[in-house]
Simulated scan of single mutants.
Amino acid sequence: MTLTSTTVMEKERVWIPGHTFTHGTTGLLVDMKRAASLMNQFQRVAYVHQVQDGHHPHLTVQETINYYLKLSDTDWAISELLKLFDLTAEARMKVKKLSETKRNTLSFIRAFCASGDWVVIEEPFHRIELEGRYAVEQILRGMQRQGKSILLLSTNLEDLLPVSDSIYRLDERGIHKMEFKDDTAPLNEEPTQLKVNKIQVKHREKTLLFNPPEVDYIESIDGTVYINVAGIAYTSSFTLTELEARLQHYGFYRCHRSYIVNLQKVRELVSWTKNSYSIKLDVEKTTLVPISRAKLSLLKELLGIS
């Protein structure tokens, strides 16, 4: 039971790669434009839940649930679903009078009752306040118990972490599985030495691990080091000097006192004046990184240009 995306080309480059998602609940960190394209692809083979999905505002919550139960021909009891969706107290309330969080939670009834093996959900916690997030998590687990596989599309990593079995990131270079370090190791264990083939960063309260080729560039701003991957800046606990030593064998170059650049991402040297240059990176959003005049000659040598 799999769900496969079709390769999409844009300007002679792969914009969305073909990829097969397997059984379970998979999170996909993706921008809005690519998410819309994927949802359009999957309409034919899965139930697709979009953030703008709404209801008949003049029906009550109970009537709405009953309506979709009849359409799906399932044997769920309305009382069970009201409890699962945390809407028991609002059962006789008209949909138009619900809070935004409750209304958006109710919108999952279509996906919950839909037939088929796969459900694709856009932004699972869109405009849902903290008190409603637990209900959404329970709804997703209820879908899993039905044997459904779920693909969650979001621009926010934090929305994917608590509900996904595995998480991937989609950008202009393809689909990459994201790896996470377990921060719950006993305090009395000896710390392990950082492996050079992984770059450790912090995102909110999570520790992420990237492969060096995924990194576009590294910068230091007001004493904080940021590692830039696919348009997102992640904070690092290492200094630029430490990262320079760890990454130089992977084709990274300290081009400025505040910047380290992945030489594989260099697209162009931009000349502003006779002695002033910047590096243009081959990434989705135009990015210019400054280069010190003293570093220019060696950079040209490393890139093999005159």
Rank of each mutant, 00 (worst) to 15 (best):
L153A: 14
D182F: 08
A135R: 07
K102T: 05
R127W: 01
L302A: 10
D159T: 09
R133N: 00
V261G: 04
L157M: 09
G54C: 09
V225A: 11
S5E: 00
L71K: 14
S166P: 00
V289T: 05
D159P: 04
E284T: 11
R204Q: 07
Q62Y: 02
R293W: 12
L151Y: 03
K206F: 09
S278I: 03
L298V: 14
K280Y: 01
P290N: 08
D183Q: 13
M39S: 02
N228C: 09
L81D: 03
Y67T: 06
E122V: 09
R257I: 07
D75I: 05
K195L: 13
F42V: 05
A91M: 12
D117T: 10
Q50E: 10
S236E: 05
L81T: 09
T7M: 14
I78D: 00
P290L: 09
K181I: 11
G54M: 11
E10S: 12
A111S: 14
E137A: 11
Y277G: 01
I305V: 15
N40Y: 00
L194E: 14
T235W: 00
T207M: 06
N188D: 10
R246I: 13
L84I: 09
E80A: 01
E242Y: 03
P213Q: 03
F21R: 03
E10P: 00
E189W: 15
A77L: 08
A245S: 10
Q146G: 15
V48P: 02
V14Q: 15
D75G: 01
D183T: 15
K97L: 10
N104V: 08
E12F: 13
V30W: 02
R257F: 07
V266G: 03
